[in-house]
């Protein structure tokens, strides 16, 4: 967790915050929120663990030679893919966990990264509407 420690902690913190907001929203808007809450917590935590494992994999991969790094990263990806599959399968089979909540929890990492790291620059949105002739 050396090189990407700060980034991992930042993303994990944001995922937990968004997860918490979604849990509060489910408490307000749903009649039976327990399944949703369990799904969101389950999916969110597995998503964070997957992200941390990805960080560890990439930190190790960049120290290898390119060909080995390629095989190593791909094999670790399929390992994480299987874990994700087992998590979704459990949430589909278990009646007390809402599968949609789990899926949202798993995908929270992506939304957090997109909103905090890629689309957090206001200049990007201003440039969309700026005419090229003005430069």
């Amino acid at each position: 967790m050396g090189l990407t420690r700060d980034l991992q902690i930042k993303v994990a913190k944001w995922v937990l915050i968004v997860d918490f907001i979604l849990i509060i929203a489910s408490l307000i808007f749903f009649n039976d929120p327990i399944g949703w809450i369990l799904g969101l917590v389950f999916g969110g935590l597995i998503g964070i663990l997957n992200f941390m494992e990805l960080g560890r994999t990439l930190e190790t991969a960049v120290t290898m030679n390119p060909r080995r790094a390629q095989a190593y990263a791909a094999s670790k990806y399929f390992l994480r893919y299987i874990i994700t599959g087992i998590v979704i399968l459990i949430s589909l089979k278990a009646n007390y966990i809402n599968a949609l909540g789990t899926v949202i929890g798993l995908l929270l990492v992506k939304f957090v990264i997109i909103s905090t790291n890629l689309f957090n620059d206001m200049e990007f949105f201003k440039n969309i509407f700026r005419r090229k002739e003005e430069d």
Partner: peptide, 29 residues
């Protein structure tokens, strides 16, 4: 991406942190 990242680190070892961080975000998405 990991293979190319390893190539990049080999070429410019001082940029390892930046390379891994950028790659981590891209790979997670």
């Amino acid at each position: 991406a990991a293979g190319k990242g390893a190539e990049g680190v080999g070429r410019q070892p001082e940029a390892q942190g930046d390379i891994v961080r950028t790659m981590l975000l891209g790979a997670a998405v």
